[in-house]
Design a binder for these strands. Structure first.
Length: 423
RNA sequence: GGAGAGAUGGCAGAGCGGUUGAAUGCGGCGGUCUCGAAAACCGUUGUCCGCUUUACGGCGGACCGGGGGUUCGAAUCCCCCUCUCUCCGCCA
């Protein structure tokens, strides 16, 4: 959520930058500013009225003490009118605030000046690419065939027990999952992130805090009876740790990592590009989250990028990094790097990580602040990234490392899996 | 699930319905003392909103788990909700 003073003082620039994200509903900005103008007037009137009633109450008290009951009773009547007025003003004020808030949350974050223009994924900028493209044998097949041949993942069983997109991982497939999770967590911890294990369900306030609510409700699984939501990413519970928190400047940065299952409804996508592990309703992911000083957040973004890169390098996967264009960026992000690994049998680049700086957009919405050296309170910056999401990593690992009669496990994982080969 | 107790500032812990934004202690910050530190002593120490000021600041409003009510006036009384603790039951 953008701050109103910022919009007010930088309106032209805001409009210009939002256009990069293809957001052109500038009347929303006007509405917010105008409503806020009204709000301030109303605030003054309401405060003044309340001040008057407070004063009268004190006077009435004095009168009773000094035995002037009659005068006091007279004043009571005056005060009753004022109180009524104050109540009405208060209600108007609340309504106005809600109205402002509702509009404010519809305005996306400003893209960083480096963000390329564009509307579709095709406009994303490839900023980095590395790794050897594997040379596969003629017998090479996509991962959905491999997992069935070597009994690593059972989609049918998941289908029976839960539904499409909820696979069972079996045998070495299950072990590989566990190995990857531990590997990712160990890497994150070594990079300075503190591990937490978050709840997989969050309440409304948290879903609102990270922006899943009010308008992306349909993307989450909900527990209606208890008004809880299954998390689409660990970002939700982890970032909400800091909701309504004022940190000390000396505590920054706060680095957190969490493994969690993630649940996504993702209704309406079918076809070859979502086959097998490419898109699931439940999957596993290790997330990194950082609360950063505003002056350090882009430095932090680069560190996150370096961290994810190093993990992919250790897994010996060919990957590339995209700087997302305005049209492909998320609502909340100011700058996002997507990481894609090459899955050789599908001959497709698969997104395995997304690293973003939200600047103070999330922080403003959830009131995450810090007290600087001068004692001033300011909004912190938040960033997060996947490090990494499992399914597509698994897909690429299996496809890229296959030979005629088996699959080799990358060296770095072998101490975690306890085996060097699947056959 | 049954019975009871409670929710106050960073923490601990007071608080007769009327200058109580809230005693006191600890912690934090500033200072005195010291070569330096500790101790001691003095001072200071919440958040949000509005108005005002070149600025330090000043004034007003809101907030004592959340919501509603009683009252001229509520942290203090009443109702509802949430959460926590203790005892009992159940249990991975």
């Amino acid at each position: 959520m953008l701050t109103i003073p910022f919009i007010r003082e930088n309106k032209a620039a805001v409009i210009e930058r939002l256009a990069i994200k293809n957001f052109t509903n500038t009347s929303l900005l006007d509405d917010v500013l105008e409503l806020d103008e009204q709000r301030r007037l109303l605030q003054k009137e309401s405060d003044d009225t309340l001040a008057e009633t407070n004063k009268l109450a004190r006077e009435i008290g004095e009168m009773y003490k000094s035995g002037k009951a009659q005068q006091a009773n007279l004043l009571k009547e005056t005060n009753a009118d004022l109180k009524e007025k104050a109540k009405a003003l208060g209600e108007q004020l609340e309504a106005l605030k809600t109205q402002i808030q509702d509009k404010l949350v519809e305005i996306p974050n400003l893209p960083h000046p480096d963000v390329p223009k564009g509307r579709t994924p095709a406009d994303n900028l490839i900023v980095y690419e590395e790794g050897q493209m594997p040379e596969l044998p003629a017998s090479a097949v996509p991962h959905w065939d491999l997992v069935s041949t070597y009994k690593l993942i059972d989609f049918e069983l998941g289908n029976k027990v839960t539904g499409a997109g909820f696979p069972f991982y079996t045998g070495k497939g299950a072990r590989l999952q566990r190995a990857l999770i531990n590997f990712f967590l160990d890497e994150a911890i070594a990079a300075g992130y503190r591990e937490v294990q978050p709840p997989l369900l969050v309440n409304e306030a948290s879903a609102y805090g990270t922006g899943q609510l009010p308008d992306k409700e349909g993307q989450m699984y909900t527990i209606g009876l208890d008004k809880l939501y299954l998390i689409p990413t660990a970002e939700v519970p982890v970032t909400n740790i800091f909701r309504d928190v004022i940190l000390n400047e000396s505590e920054l940065p706060v680095r957190t990592t969490a493994y969690s299952s993630c649940f996504r409804r993702e209704a309406g996508s079918w076809g070859k590009h979502v086959r097998g592990l490419n898109r699931l309703h439940q999957f596993d992911k290790v997330e990194i989250v950082e609360v950063a000083h505003p002056e350090k957040s882009y430095e932090t973004l680069e560190k996150m990028r370096a961290h994810v890169s190093s993990v992919l390098q250790k897994l010996e996967l060919p990957f590339r990094i995209l700087k997302l264009c305005g049209g492909d960026m998320s609502f909340t992000s100011a700058l996002t790097y997507d990481f894609e690994v090459y899955s050789a049998a599908q001959q497709m680049w698969l997104e395995v990580s997304s690293v973003s700086n939200f600047e103070n957009f999330q922080a403003n919405r959830m009131k995450l602040r810090f007290k600087d050296k001068e004692g001033n309170i300011q909004l912190a910056h938040t960033l997060n990234g996947s490090a990494l999401a499992l399914p597509r990593i698994v897909a690429a690992l299996l496809e890229n490392n296959q030979d005629e009669n088996g699959i080799n496990i990358p060296k770095v994982l072998q101490q975690y899996t306890g085996f060097e080969r699947i056959d």
